[in-house]
C-alpha cells in the first residue's frame, strides 16, 4: 500500500513538473503576443494623445488583462512614486518583475531592454520608430517561441509522466 502511495506521489510530481515546463512554453508565446498589444496601446497614447509616460504606461497596464500588464504597471508605479528614477531604470525593473513571473529568454529581455533605453528621451517620431522596431522584433521572437512551443510542449507534457513512471519502475 505504502509503495503504491509513493509511486503515485512520484508519478504526479514528475507529471506536474512536465506540465509546468510545457505551460511555460505556451505562456511565453502568449506574453510575447500581448507585449506587442501593449506596445500598440503605448503607440496610441504617444502618437495621438502625447500622454506623458507615467500616465501612458499606467493606462496601458489598465487596458491589458494578461501577464504583460505587470511590466507596464510596475514601470508606471516606479515613475509615479519614486523620485530621481530614470525611465530606463523604471522599465528595467518592470522587465525584472515580468521575468520573475514568466521566464523570458536572454534575447527577449534584450529586445525589451534596448526598447527601454530609448523610451521617452526623444521626439514623437523617434518614439514611434522605436516602438515599431521593438514590435517587429517581438513578433519574430513570438514566432520563434511558437515554433519551440510546438516542438517541446507535447514532449514535456508526456515526458514528466514518462520520467515519473521510469523512476517508479526502477524503485520497484
Amino acid at each position: 500500500m505504502l509503495k503504491l502511495i509513493g509511486a503515485a506521489i512520484i508519478l504526479s510530481s514528475c507529471g506536474a513538473g512536465g506540465l509546468k515546463i510545457a505551460h511555460v512554453y505556451q505562456e511565453r508565446t502568449r506574453v510575447l503576443r500581448f507585449l506587442q498589444n501593449g506596445l500598440n496601446l503605448l503607440e496610441t497614447e504617444i502618437n495621438y494623445i502625447s500622454t506623458p509616460l507615467p500616465l501612458a504606461l499606467r493606462r496601458v497596464s489598465e487596458k491589458l488583462t494578461q501577464t504583460p500588464r505587470i511590466l507596464f504597471g510596475k514601470a508606471a508605479d516606479i515613475l509615479q512614486k519614486e523620485e530621481g528614477v530614470t525611465t530606463k531604470e523604471a522599465w528595467e525593473r518592470g522587465i525584472a518583475e515580468l521575468n520573475h513571473r514568466v521566464p523570458l529568454t536572454r534575447e527577449e529581455i534584450g529586445i525589451l531592454s534596448v526598447f527601454g533605453c530609448g523610451l521617452g528621451i526623444s521626439s514623437k517620431e523617434d518614439q514611434l520608430k522605436n516602438i515599431s522596431l521593438a514590435r517587429e522584433q517581438l513578433r519574430m521572437a513570438e514566432k520563434a517561441a511558437d515554433e519551440a512551443r510546438e516542438k517541446n510542449q507535447r514532449i514535456w507534457q508526456y515526458m514528466g509522466f514518462g520520467l515519473g513512471a521510469a523512476v517508479v519502475l526502477i524503485l520497484l
Binding site: P52, T86, T87, I121, D126
Partner: peptide, 16 residues
C-alpha cells in the same frame, strides 16, 4: 538634464 527629465516626466515627446 536631470531637471529636464523631471520637468518632462521622462517624456520629451509629450512636450514637443
Amino acid at each position: 538634464d536631470r531637471t529636464l527629465q523631471n520637468l518632462s516626466q521622462g517624456s520629451l515627446y509629450a512636450w514637443e
